[in-house]
Design a protein around this nucleic acid. Sequence first.
DNA 1: CTTTCGGGATTTTTT
DNA 2: ATCCCGAAAG
Length: 742
Amino acid sequence: MTTSSVQDLLSSLNPQQREAVQHIEGPLLILAGPGSGKTRVITYRIAYLVREVGVNPRRIMAMTFTNKAAKEMRERLDRLLGPRAAELSLGTFHSQCAAILRRDGTHVGLERNFHIYDDEDQITVVKKSLLDMDMDSGKFPPRAILSAISRAKSLVQDAEQFASSVDTYYEEIVARVYRRYESILTSAQAVDFDDLLMKTHQLLMGFPEVAERYQGRYLHLLVDEFQDTNVAQYAIARHIAKQHRNIAVVGDPDQSIYSWRNADLRNILSFQHDHPEAQLVTLGENYRSTKTILEGARNVIAANQQRLEKELFTERHQGEKIVIAEAYNPEEEALYVLQEVERLRKTADFTFNDVAVMYRVNSQSRAFEETCLRFGVPYRLVGGVRFYQRREVKDVITYLRVINNPYDEISLARIVNVPARGIGQRSLEDLTFWARQRNLSLWEAMQAVVKGRTEGGEAPPLASRPAGATAGITGLITDLIEQGQRVDIVTLLDNLLERIKYKQHLVSDPDRGEERWDNVMELRGVALQYKDWDPGEGLFAFLENVALVADVDRMDEAEREALTLITLHQAKGLEYPVVFMTGMEEGVLPHMRSMDDPGEMEEERRLTYVGMTRAKDRLYMVRAFRRGFGGASMPSGPSRFLADIPEHIISKPMGVRQVVTPARQPSFWPGARTVTPAADGKPSVQPFKVGEKVKHNKFGEGVVINCIATNDDYEVTVAFRTDAGIKRLLASFAPLERVREE
DNA sequence: CTTTCGGGATTTTTT
DNA sequence: ATCCCGAAAG
């Protein structure tokens, strides 16, 4: 569609959007409400710069927050600009910084092939640091330490700077771990996510000749989701834009939901302070949601104290009321949602693809998954236990990392004994100790073991069994490194799996073995994209992709008709005709952990706002009366945010929960029908099995979908085929009969 | 020495 | 319910 004229593009925009697109010289701050055509403005602006102003696309940089946003922008720009779109520097902060560091990182001590450590690796490094320094990881939880280090890095404080600014004992500890942590990363030639930013910042600040190259090159800089940038990111952007001062940032303070990842809302507030000449454009017209949904969302967000008020309006119709529904527990909540989805499909012409079920925490997805499986409803789970972090996937990736660079000690240590081959903790410690004494790496120590066995000479002190095993794995890695130079990534991967007998290893676990192997095969599917690359290059590119790509980005790969299960955080930037916000309870949304901090509470409110504004036509907000935290389930009250939605736009369906249990009387009352507990204390009533077909003399045939023991009875949940729908019944009272399956 | 088994603590959100 | 760590068995 490169054919559409620039005039056509402009005429399709409203005046504010046009103003944002056509502002050329100098800083620009775009405050963009939800559904206000933000992506459109960014992409048209880039197209306008290239096609009308004549800016070389090589001289434009656009930073996004997620790969998904980058990809979407790339696709739209392909259509607007054709092949020239490929010349734009467009990507996430992290991936663009990685690219800069691959190119110029030697100045800050990075080889070209540094590894990027993920969260799990980071924890491993912190634990190792604590261990090295004889500190108790019970007293200093690695997670907490890591988050302190991460916060420092987001503020571009390196270990030395941090150490010189400590003022509590705890920070002193963090400072010591931070130093050690850095030295482990350095010797492994690895960086963490925060380093990608911090080291880029150091590079730009410390090496003017490098910085000038980037500053001179980029005439225009765009930053998307500016409200979610941290100090390091903003500093990098400002620095790159320093020479030409054409920095355009787009954001919405009301949608800032990443402060826990050190995003600093103040960036968006200080932008105008840092750039007094900045032009401000507010995009207030919402093209996404009905009037009702927008009004609900506006009322929720209005209660926040710290915010820049902006006018929001829509020309869309009034639409349906917001449905606030109540269920008994998470299982019933899921049943209600699926029932309602079914109804919408039948009566309102929505498809599964139109529906998203949103929740605050990943663990909430389980009830929905199970219920979907039970009823055969296709679903797409975004995130969850993230794919690349599943143990089996991570193991294979770690092997590949070692093949790429065996001096990566954290990775090497992770896989020497996977699958278990007789190199335990003790052997690994001895090996590491021996290596450190001689100033060698773990990999060199392992090679010495091999050498010691074949030609004698000095070798680490290992018992014969571990020594043999070590020689084995060392030989294996050596072979694979050598192969890695000659064969493509997929062949390499296949050989690796074959030689470590990984399939047998996984499948020996009867529980989820098959599933795990499927995951490995899915990873192989990703590797297939790199099959045609040059041997070493393909491996490298594959690892880079895996390190920087999150699961949300894989979402649209599944094309089949399915409803979406997604966290509120991941849903940002997306939209769906029908949205179910679930777990609308105190303790869940707002989350328990934000209860005692007003700032965090405001963030919970913004999260609610983000969720509500994802909906185009129908919005449901559902809660459960009881919710369990692992073991026991507890009563839970309605989320305070529900109270901020005006009554006149709410619909509360009656009979969400059609409980048919007869009025229950305590069994010790005279006249009450009692069920005598059996000798072992278990109820004497026979339980029904899930999936069993039953018949009720009033409701007809149905399927048991749940059966839980109560004090002296069983509570059976049955999905009836008839209009009765889903009922909860007491096994001892209900006229329920099993139906024999032929 | 390694592995496995069991008990204990712990559960936000992700580039 | 799941993960992590420590103790006993092979």
